[in-house]
Design a binder for these strands. Sequence first.
DNA 1: GTCTGCGGGCGCC
DNA 2: GGCGCCCGCAGAC
Length: 329
Amino acid sequence: MSRAEEREEADCVCSVGMKFTWDINDPKLPQDTKQCDSFQEWTDGYVRFIYSGDDKNAQRHLSGWAMRNTNNHNCQILKKSCLGVVVCSRGCTLPDGSRLQLRPAICDKARQKQQKKLCPSCNAPLELLPCRGHSGYPVTNFWRIDGKAIFFQAKGVHDHPRPESKSETEARRSTVKRRVSSPPFTPKRRLLEPQVSDITSLQFLPALLSCVDPSERISFIEPNFTQHYPSFQSPEPYYNHNALGEAPPTLQKPANPRLYMGRPSYEFQGYLTSPSYPMTSDFCDPSCPSSSSNSSSVLSPPPPSSPSPRLLQAEGTAERPPPPMRQPP
DNA sequence: GTCTGCGGGCGCC
DNA sequence: GGCGCCCGCAGAC
């Protein structure tokens, strides 16, 4: 058995979807799925999941990544492609040492509007860092409802930092909206007495505050702050490729020689070591494939012995021509 | 205003 | 034909 096969077999233990051999395009999908995977918000790599048809998140085709609908001319399969992440074009560092990583707006108009804004930290223009994790193209997610199960398949490894999750974006929006619509209160008292129950969350406040306009920051600190931002209570590592996914097949056998070139203008290490996404040792536990309600158990950094494609790029081992450059809008 | 899903259409391979 | 992508539309929030 080859190493790739051994690894794939080991990975298969981690999710119900990976226990079966299927592809989203298969005419017939596995039917005898007694078990289902718990919903994974931050899927990454070439992974498959089978969710319960009752799973609300799966029904809504949710993802932590900013995924936009892509027409694949197949009404049976919903296809979504990753928009990447919005970062500061200057790559500045926020007061807490982290980097600005905003969630790109899904709507094209809203995204263009978003990109016209300036970095709240250094006033440099914001820049959309596109995803090119799937053979030079954006990572794609496929959703398909079949029987009582919802089949999910992801293709590609995100080659950019995680954006703010959807729930975080919505929470921030609602907070801002609430402040605008509600009567004024005593901002000084709020700032001085944040009343955050989990004091460890305070370390993320500078980064969060810098993501909003100064005029919006006052209301950002709330007593229920950690409820709005659960992921900040248990920060997950950004870099967790292939915790349970297959090894990207195109890495061993690139379909396109233009692929897998790192972005020279970005220092990945800065993202990898960002305090917002500290590395953990919370690897996938093969003994509990689908019982975990915490997605971070699946989204773990790869073991040191198996550097990910991105790390290989960062180490300069990828001697590949640059990916196809897309025309700016 | 924004998100989401859908579908037409185009270009590339 | 498959795929990626752009665009517009409609419904929902």
